[in-house]
Amino acid sequence: MKLPSDVAVDQSGRIFILDGTADTVRVYSPKGEQIFTLGGAGILKQPLGIDVSPGGDVVVADSGNHRLALFAAEEKTPHYIDVPSSVNGKPSDPTDVNFGPDNTYIVVDNDNHRVVSMNRSGKLLWSTGTMGRNPGEFRFPFLIDIDRLGRIYIVEAINTRVQVLESNGKFARFIGEWGIEPGQFFRPKGVVVNEKNEVFISDSYLGVVQVFKREGGLIGVVGDSNGKITKFKTPVGMAISGNRLYVVEMFNNRVLILERQGQ
């Protein structure tokens, strides 16, 4: 794979890696054996974000085609859901998607600096955000995750923060800020929230993954058992399954799986 961007893990432990430059989703067994692929040329066009539902459905944010591609569990032929253009007519740029509550999709529209919610039929339920720095505004939102309660965590690459929205799209808070100190971001890219509501946020230029409380307080930085910060090469999308953290190292063309020790 070349320059993968995101990763998702289903309930059986299968790993879905989005090899977007090849327009392909590569599916691996928990042991790392490639099982099958989804998509391909003509189906996907340089997608960036992926999510897997508890039922095994796979949804891909296909930015090049301005749409979502839904691969029903164990199906290879997708169902497409167009992401609507912005109000000023600019085509959508869906860079990530998550299965939201109540059979919705929460979609990041990167070029239009907004987040939208759509039902399974593709109907726009709500849209929030314009380009800006204030709460409810975005500058290049990129990848997202949703916690157990439906709260939406959106990484803003240029605003160098994670903006948290309520499940209905209302602003809740920011996590992190501009800077290079712990708890700050220079190029935040990926976000994933675990069962404990710990929020893992990757920084592709600093090469670290920091962990925050849901409320925003810094818990720490991912490191090894010796207390040394683990440096990643361009960490981007992430996933969590059990006590394992899956980190896409885009520039290294790989996914690292880290297993948590202790609490």
Binding site: P182, L218, V221, I257
Partner: peptide
């Protein structure tokens, strides 16, 4: 670009390095 090299499993711990008080970006 180097070919894909598959998954490494690393032990991970979270630790809190010394840091200034950070505030949510406004």
């Amino acid at each position: 670009l180097s070919p894909f090299s598959f998954i490494l499993i690393l032990a991970v711990t979270l630790f809190l390095p010394p840091a200034p008080n950070v505030q949510a970006a406004g």
